[in-house]
Each structure stands twice: as structure tokens, then as C-alpha cells.
């Protein structure tokens, strides 16, 4: 299936150039003279980013989606507030209330960038911390390992998948 490229993805070379230019404008405060240094910096940043993480969207599959971002941002903000409250309430009690332990989760996300975002957001979610990714299995440290983490992780994975337009090819559940 061919999707309209420019509308849904902004991770191509031009999109990255625009992103880095916007970043520079924010950092330098929008003074025109700053572009003497800014223009070479932005160009080399784009080159480095393309070199280090080539465009994954050639097959029209991956890349970040604006619509996914709209769904991801509020979910992420709400969950990170819950995560902060959860850990604060646990440690501020007279007796610290934790039962730490490990659980593992098999991610179904294919896109490498999506996996990185998934790993990072796991660590900001309530009570979970991504500790290792090895042999396609994420090892997760939980503040309370007695809970089943599976449903929360699957929900997060679905949101991250939507962010990257990744259809979760059904692996072994």
C-alpha cells in the first residue's frame, strides 16, 4: 500500500533539515547573524543524522506520524505524571513500599527507532524501567513485580506503534 509521503512523515532529509533549522532558531534566539554559524551547523547535523540513522521510510512503512504524535503526547504526559506521583508516594511513606523484581516482555515493534522510543517511555511510566533489550526480549525492572505489567506495556506499545505508523506484526504473545 502506498501512503502519501509528505503529509504523514517528517523524517526524510528535508524534514530533518527543517527540524534542525527550527532547533537552531530556538537555541540562538532568532538573531539573523547567528545563521553564520547556524547554517553550517544545521547542514552538518542533517548529514550526521542521515548518516547515523538512514531514512527508514523508503519502503513507505516507518517514519513518524503527525496524527500519532497527537495521540502519543497526551498519553505520555498523563502517564509520566502518574509515574512521578507513584514513585514519590512510595518513597515518602514511613516504610518504603516496594517489591522490586524483573519481568520480561517481547516487543512486537519492528522499526528500530520505534523500539528506542518504546524503551525510553517504559522508563517514564509508573513503576517500570527498561533494563535490557537482548534476543528480542525486553527485561523490565518493576517497583512492584507482583503486578502483571503486560497490559500496560501492550497499551504503550500500541500508542508508540501508532506514532510510527507501525503495524504490530503479530509475534508470539
Amino acid at each position: 500500500m502506498i501512503r502519501p509521503r509528505s503529509l504523514h512523515r517528517f523524517m526524510g532529509p528535508l524534514g530533518r533539515l527543517g527540524l534542525f533549522s527550527a532547533l537552531w532558531a530556538v537555541l540562538a534566539g532568532g538573531s539573523p547573524a547567528s545563521w553564520i554559524i547556524g547554517a553550517p551547523t544545521v547542514l552538518s547535523a542533517t548529514w550526521a543524522s542521515l548518516r547515523l540513522h538512514p531514512d527508514t521510510g523508503r519502503d513507505g512503512r516507518a517514519g513518524m506520524r503527525l496524527l500519532g504524535l497527537v495521540r502519543f503526547t497526551p498519553f505520555f504526559l498523563l502517564q509520566s505524571i502518574r509515574g512521578g506521583l507513584d514513585v514519590a508516594l512510595r518513597v515518602l511513606r514511613p516504610r518504603v513500599r516496594i517489591h522490586p523484581g524483573f519481568q520480561s516482555y517481547r516487543p512486537r515493534l519492528g522499526d528500530p527507532l520505534a523500539r528506542v522510543v518504546f524503551l525510553d517511555t517504559i522508563s517514564l511510566l509508573p513503576g517500570t524501567l527498561s533494563a535490557d533489550l537482548r534476543d528480542g526480549l525486553i527485561h523490565i525492572h518493576a517497583l512492584d513485580a507482583r503486578d502483571d505489567l503486560e497490559p500496560g506495556l501492550a497499551r504503550l506499545e500500541a500508542v508508540v506503534a501508532a506514532l510510527f505508523g507501525d503495524s504490530l506484526e503479530s509475534g508470539p504473545r
Binding site: 509520566s80 509515574g83 512521578g84 507513584d86 514513585v87 518513597v91 516496594i98 522490586p100 522508563s123 517514564l124 509508573p126 513503576g127 524501567l129 525492572h141 517497583l143
Partner: peptide
Amino acid sequence: SRLHALTK
């Protein structure tokens, strides 16, 4: 566990 407190 300390990492949890730190990040969140």
C-alpha cells in the same frame, strides 16, 4: 529502584 526515583 533508585533509578526509578531518579528518572520519574
